[in-house]
Design a protein around this nucleic acid. Structure first.
Length: 598
RNA sequence: GGCCCCGUGGUGUAGCGGUCUAACAUGCCACCCUGUCACGGUGGAGAUCAGGGGUUCAAAUCCCCUCGGGGUCGCCA
């Protein structure tokens, strides 16, 4: 090693020792006759003193040092003179008196600050990610991520799980997201696909008798990116044999509870994790990933709306629509501009508009409400009783603002659910120290796809239907519930899993329902079906998203901040400049020619 | 593909029709400085205001288009 100690570890214990440090110049303070350097390495920072009275040549060399130069320093660890200690630094009571120093490698002036926390244009950071990662915040995120992954491995190993790697070059399957394809050199016109998840492989491991499997697995999906989505992400992939829903959920609950306790003990969690079924989540929160850090639940006003003289309401109800609302506490004073902003907000989710009821200007009990205190375009078509009834359902008081959306049920839930989330964040209703984990259960097995006019799996086609609903599979597929569950935290889907189908008959039945011919089934999923004919055990699993978990624990707004080398929203690696054109020889070898885009 | 937001020295911001020959902080360069720690002081260099077009006597500023970035809807079993 070119060093005997790391900068961060030095303290009073080391006083009197001769040490050699090596790292980056974090800051130089040149007093002319005396120069200080904050030397930084992956462990922390230590102050080095260059005193010409100790070593004239060292002092000379120090005058050439600049930020981010890589240097090594040898010298004695001494206590700082009284009154010059720096309590902000763990090594602040000591300093190293340079007796020998070398510039190992100079550095150009970095394109942005390494030693200060300032927001920098993200593409610039991504282009120079290797510099960006030198910043404290990024280093801490990588350290946190390592702690999380290490915890997962230990936790599962202690419970008898074994980690199995599965291949990255696999077969394209028709279900789900767009695949990343890899052309085959040996077989012209044939392609591998990168796994969207190791789903089929882990189920085959169950057939293999592994019983308790996990993997820190890379997953690839060629879909548009978001703050919480990337072309490639990492899952903690878990699968177990001879289990039911409860076994998986209690394992997951234990996993996350202990993780939080160990890694971010300052955070509170709800324990036990609440379990909400899909229907209830959609009813109350308009979302299958509700943020439970605050209430503001949605209530149904459809029956009230039907009784009013408000033609907008009546028409929507007559057409099979619904009317639902939430209460924004203390917001009755919202200006026209603010209300219009919220109106535009719900329109963005397909709603026709937002109807608001400002309940008086003062705070107080809603029993004191009178009709002239209500400000709303709809109030003249409604009775006081009707408005009071709405207020009562959402537990509104004087001074509150009712936010009501009417329209097609799906759109109402989506728009009002997003509005709830928006108001929660505007009114800062979420406790920042709370991690509101919740299980969402009893998802429907299928969702009707209007575009393809087909039933599509809500999760994936390997999810087992609830036993009591199996007889409805063909007759009423929309009513069939799935043995599926999600883990949601603070409004983000953190994990998804299910008990799987393990008999060939049922698996075939599901595929047929999804519109596959028997020939298709054998062509595309033949391996799976055949494997199920050789004694497949009942099994199920779950797959938490590692990037999202770390993002939440780190308090970051995007998963890019917790990935070492992420891609930008356009799926471009700014640092490596990928994707990039292939050379003609490469294309030829792969039997590919490029198509002219029209 | 739709919608919203953003683009001014290396970095972060101000300026939002004329006083901009573009300001401030920091960084950079030079010199001074022996106890600083976001050291201090003096001086200096550094910006075709993303690009193009238009409106105007006059555009960083208003309008249009393009490009780039972010957020989001669609999409993501």
């Amino acid at each position: 090693m070119l060093k005997t100690h790391s900068c961060g570890e030095l303290n009073k214990e080391h006083v009197g020792r001769e040490v050699t440090l090596a790292g980056w110049v974090d800051r130089r303070r040149d007093h002319g006759g005396l120069t200080f350097i904050d030397l930084r390495d992956s462990n922390g920072v230590a102050q080095v003193v260059f005193n010409p009275a100790i070593s004239k040549s060292c002092h000379q060399i120090a005058s050439e040092m600049r930020n981010e130069y890589v240097v090594s320093v040898s010298g004695e660890v001494t206590l700082r003179p009284p009154g010059t200690e720096n309590l902000k630094l763990p090594s602040g009571e000591i300093e190293v008196i340079a007796q020998q120093t070398t510039i190992l490698n100079p550095s150009k002036t970095p394109p942005f600050y390494i030693n200060e926390e300032v927001e920098v244009d993200e593409n610039l950071r991504l282009k120079y990610r290797y510099l960006d990662l030198r910043r404290k915040r990024m280093l801490n995120n990588l350290i946190l991520r390592d702690k999380v992954v290490t915890f997962f491995r230990n936790f599962l190993h202690e419970r008898g799980f074994i980690e199995v790697e599965t291949p990255i070059l696999i077969k394209s399957t028709p279900e789900g997201a767009r695949d990343y394809l890899v052309p085959s050199r040996l077989y012209p016109g044939n392609f591998y696909a990168l796994p969207q998840s190791p789903q089929i492989l882990k189920q085959l491991l169950m057939v293999a008798g592994i019983e308790k499997y996990f993997q820190i697995a890379k997953c690839f999906r060629d879909e548009d990116s978001r703050a919480d989505r990337q072309p490639e992400h990492t899952q903690l992939d878990i699968e177990m044999s001879f289990v039911d829903e409860n076994d998986i959920l209690s394992l997951a609950e234990e996993l996350f509870s202990q993780l939080i306790e160990k890694v971010t003990p300052g955070k509170r969690i709800l324990k036990p994790f609440p379990r909400i079924n899909y229907r209830e989540a959609m009813e109350k929160y308009g979302s299958d990933k509700p943020d439970l850090r605050f209430g503001m639940e949605m209530r149904d006003f459809t029956d009230i709306a039907a009784r009013t003289d408000f033609s907008v309401f009546k028409k929507i109800v007559a057409d099979g629509g619904r009317v639902k609302g939430i209460c924004a506490p203390g917001c009755s004073g919202y200006t026209r501009t603010q209300l219009e902003e919220l109106n535009q907000f719900v329109k963005g989710y397909g709603a026709g508009g937002l109807l608001t009821f400002a309940l008086g200007s003062d705070s107080g009990n809603s029993k004191d409400l009178t009709l002239d205190m209500v400000k709303s375009v709809a109030s003249k078509y409604m009775t006081l009783e009707q408005i009071e009834e709405m207020a009562r359902r959402v537990e509104a008081n004087l001074g509150d603002l009712l936010l009501v959306v009417a329209g097609k049920p799906k759109i109402v839930d989506k728009a009002l659910g997003e509005l709830r989330r928006e108001m929660g964040s505007r009114l800062k209703m979420a406790d920042p120290d709370l991690l509101a984990f919740v299980f969402i259960t009893n998802f429907p097995l299928f969702a009707w796809d209007e575009d393809t006019k087909r039933w599509e799996p809500e999760h994936h086609p390997f999810t087992s239907p609830a036993p009591e609903d199996i007889n409805k599979l063909e007759s009423d597929p929309g009513k069939v519930r799935a043995r599926m569950y999600d883990i949601v935290c603070n409004g983000m889907e953190l994990a998804s899993g299910s008990i799987r189908i393990h008999t060939p008959e049922l698996q075939r039945r599901i595929f047929r329902l999804l519109g596959y011919t028997d020939e298709d089934i054998m062509l595309k999923f033949g391996t799976m079906i055949e494997a199920f004919e050789y004694g497949a055990p009942p099994h199920g699993g779950i797959a938490p998203g590692v990037d999202r978990i770390v993002m939440i624990l780190a308090g970051e707004q995007t998963i890019r901040e917790v990935m070492a080398f992420p891609k930008n929203q356009g799926a471009i690696d700014m640092m490596l400049e990928a994707p990039s054109p292939a050379r003609e020889e490469q294309l030829k070898e792969l039997h590919l020619s490029l198509r002219e885009e029209s």
